[in-house]
Nucleic acid binder design. Structure first.
Lengths: 283, 283
DNA sequence: TAGTGGTCTAGACCACCGT
DNA sequence: CGGTGGTCTAGACCACTAA
């Protein structure tokens, strides 16, 4: 294949359409692979074809495929395992399980956490509406309070890029960390994408929320952005968290996106920081 | 040079000592370059030698140097500029100036900020004890309230890895965002490293705090980690921020490190989030 | 042992920048 | 134009994993 010219598909692949022409070859390859992931041709947890296989399939050198996969790995879409292969990443894997949970107990990792090596999260099946598991040394327990379908409030519709009045699923749940009620999450999801999502389905599922969305609804959360404010606890929130109304809480608003930067979740978390803190690395 | 064996220094470079032997060649090269940066042989804003130059100097292929520099660039230690060269990154550069400031006005970037392309921060010299400048579309003004030397409190000494009782510099400053007092920063620095740092020096300097530490004291902040809590504003803090005592504030504790992960700053920021929020990207 | 990702090389050519 | 980083190739060898 010529070096920088537009990629011409061979028989084994879907046509690449609205791509930025004249992108470097490795980006075109990256984009082709991403499309396959998005289409679900290669599923979370499974290996993608080997570098040599992809190289011959796309008629480029292995080095080019390598660079494409390097970026996919940097984007956390894929995980390389030496000697084994390259795997579609999944919220089910221990290493990426609570990738988006930034709340840490205050005692944890006094200095930089650097690598910390999470002690492998073994799952314990919980009672109805709950699941208990260990993550980063802390015991995590999730209890679903509510799951209902409703017409999207204007604000939610805007964020999720829905027409106003379209239906959304609202989930409210309580997170216990070390036995303390710590986070109240209010989650909104596009109704169309998560058709069969019910309170019962959630109750019977033990495991990370995003893992359920991934395995049951084929929607993988890729990336998210958060906005954090300090607020006084509203009465209703305080009640659920067993706190006095008005105590300071972290209000964490999160927009999560799948492939192509499609927003598919809006979440508002109300967090006590009496025994925990929000952790962040700057670089 | 043989492929994976230990690197043997040639005449042009300091001996590599306590390095993890049997690291890949490119990491050894990376480490050699890092040492040069740390030693100040190549200064912030200046170019480092070209890839071909480094390749011949270290007697490795250009590809290997390239991979080393790729990582340095990913670590933000260095910035590549096509056609020009590779430059030691600096807190003076517009693009990295307020790299660590995560507070955004609420209206800014309704959706993902993605790339946003900050509109180039032109500096305006301010009155004594202050500097006004524009960053990411918001007007930022810093006012030094206090700068004194003191014996390190136990907690500070621990974080900065000093012997208890060693002297530290404490700086207190107020950040105005869009004319609103928004953040009160309490900063502790190791006294030994920042010997000539005085209130006057700070007052006469217009520009980012870290840029001053970099240019005047040769200490570059590489990386930081933050812990965030929601707290009720202490009376003293509230007074400075023109708020009522007890209103919810973000308390952001930051530990910043230089090369070799040496901690060199502890900072506690008290932030109102009435008109701003803390922004974070998860991936 | 065969297959995978990881490292290293050498050389070609391109895109961009300043002079 | 010459020099810099950016892309692409082809091939060799290493390290790790699983059968």
């Amino acid at each position: 294949m010529a070096s920088t010219v537009a990629y011409t598909p061979d028989e084994t692949d879907a046509v690449p359409q609205a791509e930025p022409r004249f992108a470097p070859l490795y980006r075109q390859i990256k984009s082709l692979i991403t499309k396959r992931l998005q289409a679900g041709d290669w599923k979370p947890g499974e290996p993608i074809p080997s570098e040599t296989e992809l190289a011959s399939r796309y008629k480029v050198s292995q080095g080019t495929v390598r660079k494409a996969i390097d970026e996919l790995a940097a984007d956390n879409l894929v995980v390389r395992k030496q000697g084994r292969g390259t795997f579609v990443s999944s919220h089910l894997e221990v290493r990426t399980q609570f990738r988006f949970l930034r709340l840490r107990p205050d005692e944890y990792g006094q200095d930089d956490v650097s690598d910390a090596g999470a002690p492998g999260g073994e799952f314990q099946r919980g009672a109805v509406s709950s699941a208990g598991r260990s993550v980063q040394g802390q015991v995590l327990r999730s209890q679903v309070l509510e799951c209902r379908r409703m017409r999207a409030p204007a604000e939610i519709a805007r964020v999720l890029q829905l027409r106003s009045g379209e239906t959304v699923v609202q989930v409210r749940r309580l997170l216990d960390l070390e036995g303390q009620p710590t986070v109240l999450d209010e989650i909104w999801l596009p109704g169309a994408r998560f058709r069969g999502l019910t309170a019962e389905r959630l109750a019977n599922y033990s495991g990370p929320f995003y893992a359920l969305l991934e395995t049951e609804f084929g929607t993988r959360m890729i990336r998210a952005s958060e906005r954090i404010k300090a607020v006084a606890a509203p009465a209703e929130v305080a009640r659920v968290l067993h706190l006095k109304a008005g105590v300071p809480l972290l209000r964490v608003d999160r927009v999560s996106v799948t492939y192509e930067d499609q927003p598919v979740e809006f979440r508002r978390g109300w967090c006590t920081t009496e025994r925990h803190h929000y952790f962040n690395e700057l670089s």
